[in-house]
Structure formats: structure tokens, C-alpha cells
Design a protein around this nucleic acid. Structure first.
Lengths: 234, 234
DNA sequence: CGGGTAATTGACTCACCTCAAGCTAGGTGG
DNA sequence: CCACCTAGCTTGAGGTGAGTCAATTACCCG
């Protein structure tokens, strides 16, 4: 308790989470294009590389075998990944990918083979630090998602999702500092619902409600954030 | 697709997640004792060290400012940490702890100063690999928690919690391979509920129900797992 | 033995799920 | 160019699992 610092404002922290792997160094990693709807990798595949999104957007989908075996396994979108975010980190511990990564729009990724990555990090302290920071940020992100799913009502979840998404858009696109007000959501209501632990109908209803209340403009997947305060509070 | 391996069984994976940091090397890190109920660290504090639990048990608690500011912030137990598990990883990205770590019983931790850790990992490949594996495992754990909170009904959550806890007890205590059947839960129903995104009354009801159905023996915080299959399925 | 924290159980409520119907938009082929 | 078709979205009506409130019991520690 030596500094009178902010009590861990998660919104602020989320911006701080935004770190780039391997952009300081000039190593020419190869890239790969992925069509909309295609998988960058699938759960169970051996981990060969980590991927940094250059352009486009992905969702990661995890499955958990259902309680009664015959019924469908529990499945959930565990994250959306925009430009400059890194994919595949969850596979390091087992050497296998723990989830599917599906492109939500035509996307390009930078490929960083894991075999190269570790030696590289042993050489360059900055790079090692960056990798650790990114992984730590991913832990925080996942924990925060869990917190959201555990404690917030539907309406707050949807609002928080929109705010988070707009800030990450801003972070990846321009560096204006101002979060984006116009969002073009690349995912379906069903994807959002899965991510937020809600049914797609509930997501739709909450979006309509936020629209009626004047917090957002809404036209299909185009969302305009009108009143940030109204979204944050209440 | 070169190996016909298990399709990412999360239960199995969870055991694989169990990795020890800095136990191969003979570096004499100092230790620290923490009384039951005391905090090992608090959210917002600068990150000085990572901690490996030597004995005892901790819970980590995260706070998220509430939607309307005047009311209490959302708060949730984000994890329970037994022997050999590492605490503090979520703080690496911001340099500040993102949660409180509270001892649930008298505990001892091994202290690993972060300033030493990174250079050490640059020197020893095995240690670096271990650290990355632990962090990755933490990502998987958090994602899986989110999945659970997003998709499973109360009864399954409680059952999954008991199974997970018993396996981790086994992993940390003896190396028998057989998961523990007798659990002495160190946390309250409220803690469990917070972790699982349920009210403490619901946790209590589900435990009673599992008891009535013959899946578990139940006597306060002492739980005996009678019928694993019944817990897993249905 | 007494006081306070933790756990159990019941009755009632409500937020979200489920099921169902209709709508909209974009792409495709006749 | 339009008709169709599918996937996605919206909205309504009704059911239900978990939350809320409240009362009682069990337990631990001083």
C-alpha cells in the first residue's frame, strides 16, 4: 500500500493489456490468409505456432464434454480476437490447441513457430517480457470474462461487451485514444450470446432495449454507441 | 492430425496442467507463512513476486466496479489454489496484482521475486518452458471456468467443482494416481458459490441433493465422493 | 455456556430460457 | 430482373431454474 493508485480499474487495465508480440523486432515471420468461416486451427491439433492477427477477426470456441454423454457437449465462444491480438496461447501447456479458432471475416495472421519462439525469448529480454505480458493479459481477460458470467445480469453483459469491443477496435485500428463509436460487429447474435453465456434471443432483446433507451444506435450488425455513460451505469 | 490422441478431454488435461515452477532447480527461494484469513497480496499492489503454495490453500478474489457506481462492486472468487500451484501470474501484464489472495487456512508459500525470474528463465530453457506452461495452464483454467459459468446448470457446476477439487488434492498431496475421495473443503459455501456464479443457498441445496442421491457423503465441510459416475453424468 | 458465523431448508419471485412465429437481407438461379 | 431460399434477427407468450428473503439449526471459539 505505497501508492494511492486507482483500485484496479478494469476498463483502464484492459487498454493496458494491449501489447504486441514481435513488432519491435524485424524478424520476418510468414503470414497466412484465412477465409471467412474457416478454421485457423482446431482443438486437439498439435500446437505448431502462435498467431498474431494482422487484419480481420477470429472467434475461439471451446468444448466441454456434456454431463450426460449422449447429449451435445457444452460449447462456448471463449473470445473474439482483433488485430494485434495473439492466438494459440492456451495450447502451450499441453502442446495441443484447446479450442478452435474460426475467422469471422477474411483475415491475415502472422505465424510464429513455437520452436523458434522460446529460444528467441531467451535471447531478447524485451521479447520475453512481451510474451509473458501477453499471456498474463490473457489470464486477466479470461478471469474477467468469468467474473462477468458469474455476476452480471444480461443487460450489463451486453453493454460491457459493446464497450469492450469498441475500445479494442480503437486500440487496434487507429491510435486516436478515443474509443470507436461506430461498430460493425463481425459475429452473429448467437456468437455474442455464446460468449456472454446468454441465448441469442436474450442478446437481441437487450440490444433492442439499449436502442429504445437511446444508449446505442442499432441496425443489424451496425452498432453506434450514443451514450457511453448510459451503457456503463444502470 | 498425426496422432490418434484423446480429443482434448478437459478432465485429463486438467491433471496435465499441474506443473511445478522451480522445483527442478536448487535455488533456495525464501518462504513466507500466512495466517488463515490474511492476504498474501491485494489487488492494486505492485507485483513484487510470484508465489508457489508450499502448504495450505488460498482463494483469489477479483473485483469489478459495479454498473451503477453507488452500489457494491461485482466481486468474485476467481480461483482456489492448492499446494504446488502458483499465485500472482495475473499481475505480470500490468505490474500490479489484479486480485486479492486470501489464505483459507494457515499456509506457506515460496517467494520468487519477479526481477529474478525473468533473467533466470533466459538462462534456463527448462525453467522458461515451465513458466510458460504454467501461465498457459492458467489461461486454460480460467477459460474453462468461464465455460462452466456460461453453460452449465447449478447442479453440474457443483459436481464439477467437487471432482476438480478432489483431483487437484490428489495431485498435490500424494502421487497415487487415484483422486482423493475424502475432501475437507477449506472454503465456505459462500466462497464456492462466488466461484461458481451461484448463491450460497444454491450451493447448499445442490450439495444436499447430491447427498440425497447417494453421489456424495456430506457432513459440513467434509465431503466424501461416493459415486464418481453419478457426479460426472446426469 | 453464550455469541456469532456458517449451513440448511422453505416459500415466493423473477430474469432468463424455451418454443414458436414472422421478418429481413443477401445471394443464387431461372 | 425478380422469385426464391436460407441464415440471421426480432418479438411474443409461457415455463422454470436459480435468486431472494426469512426462519431455524449446527458449530466453533472465547
Amino acid at each position: 500500500m505505497d501508492t494511492p493508485i486507482e483500485p484496479a480499474n478494469p476498463r483502464a487495465a484492459l487498454s493496458a493489456l494491449h501489447v504486441r508480440l514481435a513488432d519491435a523486432d524485424a524478424i520476418p515471420f510468414p503470414t497466412r490468409s484465412v477465409e471467412r468461416g474457416d478454421a485457423l486451427y482446431c482443438a486437439g491439433e498439435p500446437l505448431r505456432s502462435l498467431y498474431t492477427v494482422q487484419s480481420g477477426c477470429f472467434k475461439t470456441v471451446a468444448a466441454y464434454p456434456s454431463a450426460d454423454d449422449d447429449s451435445a457437449p457444452h460449447t462456448q465462444v471463449t473470445g473474439f480476437h482483433l488485430t494485434d491480438e495473439t492466438l494459440g496461447l492456451d495450447g502451450i501447456c499441453t502442446g495441443r490447441h484447446e479450442s478452435d479458432a474460426i475467422a469471422l471475416e477474411p483475415s491475415v495472421v502472422r505465424i510464429m513457430p513455437v520452436g523458434i519462439l522460446e529460444p528467441l525469448c531467451r535471447e531478447y529480454a524485451a521479447m520475453q517480457h512481451e510474451l509473458l505480458a501477453i499471456m498474463s493479459a490473457e489470464i486477466v481477460r479470461a478471469s474477467r470474462l468469468a467474473l462477468m458470467l458469474g455476476t452480471m445480469p444480461a443487460r450489463e453483459r451486453v453493454a460491457a461487451f459493446l464497450l469492450d469491443f469498441s475500445e479494442r477496435l480503437e486500440a487496434s485500428a487507429d491510435a486516436s485514444g478515443e474509443p470507436a463509436a461506430e461498430l460493425q460487429l463481425p459475429m452473429t447474435r448467437g456468437d455474442i450470446g455464446s460468449y456472454l453465456g446468454l441465448e441469442l434471443e436474450t442478446v437481441s432483446r437487450m440490444l433492442s432495449k439499449l436502442h429504445r433507451e437511446g444508449a446505442i444506435g442499432l441496425n443489424g450488425r451496425a452498432v453506434r454507441i450514443v451514450d457511453r455513460a448510459l451503457l456503463q451505469h444502470n
